[in-house]
């Protein structure tokens, strides 16, 4: 009986510590947020004015101007081409890298770390920044756009495929080794069939994302609908901008419908 109050006190202290931790965490979050709000370089009168400004911009956009529709549709098709070609060519680079980046198939540690470095570098640099780099190298145009989308997709596809390879059932691999198959044949028969579903899922998902991404490439000069959008914004042709924006929404929704259909067919 004597021990009971002590135990309870210990228990209370622990609970108090927990509450204390939560309080400090909350305080920290509030402090960081208020620092961010006070320190950020914002001219506050503009903030109060923002709704009116946004309304005025929206007002200038209405009604959408369909006169350049033909040109816009052409640019949208070009955007899809960029996304598709980039996704297609990504496959040929991402799969070998995924093979090197999976712990169970990589030939040695050096290859593993090299491949992981490539994947991280590719994933950490945003498509727009890749586009900036390739526009500087190859000049404005669709090639820069395709390469930019490719470079960003390699990391995405490579990482997910690498994980898929790491998750395969090891037993067929063992069986193929036991029949005396060489390394390439083991991969062909025991690894490839097991990762095919993951491959289609990842490629379809990335194609969907790439359509969204390729709508902005043109803003840095890398082709697609973004070029017309930038031009329309620069010339204050707001009704045309509205048409382009509607076009992008429709394109993205169509892409979503198509990928949903493909997914249900293939998987």
């Amino acid at each position: 009986m004597v021990a009971t109050p002590t135990e309870r006190r210990v228990w209370q202290r622990y609970s108090r510590r927990e509450r204390w931790t939560r309080f400090v965490l909350l305080l920290l979050v509030v402090a960081v947020l208020s620092w961010a709000a006070r320190d950020v370089d914002i001219f506050w009168p503009w903030v109060w004015d923002a709704p009116a400004q946004i309304y005025s911009l929206a007002d200038r956009m209405w009604p959408p101007d369909p006169r350049r529709l033909g040109e816009i549709v052409e640019a949208l098709v070009e955007t899809v081409h960029i996304a598709t070609l980039a996704t297609f060519s990504t496959i040929f680079v991402a799969l070998p890298i995924a093979y090197l980046a999976a712990q169970n198939t990589t030939p040695n540690r050096a290859c593993l770390w090299f491949a992981r470095f490539v994947l991280v570098a590719s994933r950490s640099v945003n498509t727009i920044i890749w586009a900036l780099l390739f526009v500087a190298i190859f000049g404005p145009g669709v090639l820069a756009g395709i390469l930019a989308i490719m470079c960003r997709s390699i990391g995405f596809v490579g990482k997910l495929m690498g994980e898929a390879i790491e998750e395969i059932d090891r037993r067929p691999v063992e069986a193929m080794e036991a029949v005396g198959a060489s390394r390439p044949k083991v991969i062909l028969y025991a690894v490839v069939p097991q990762v095919v579903p993951a491959f289609f899922a990842v490629i379809i998902l990335r194609w969907d994302i790439n359509i969204r991404e390729s709508t902005v490439l043109g803003l840095v000069g890398a082709g697609g609908i973004g070029v017309i959008l930038q031009g329309a914004i620069d010339t204050f042709a707001w009704p045309t901008v509205a048409t382009i924006l509607c076009g992008i929404v429709i394109l993205v929704l169509l892409g979503e419908v198509l990928t949903g259909w493909l997914r249900s067919r293939v998987l």
Partner: peptide, 27 residues
């Protein structure tokens, strides 16, 4: 020259029976 039969069958599930059988000739 050494055939092996496994506890968990170790078949390649997504391939056909014929492909699994022919896999024995991969060597």
């Amino acid at each position: 020259r050494i055939g092996m039969v496994f506890q968990g069958f170790n078949l390649i599930d997504r391939l056909t029976v014929m492909e699994n059988v022919l896999a024995g000739r991969l060597g």
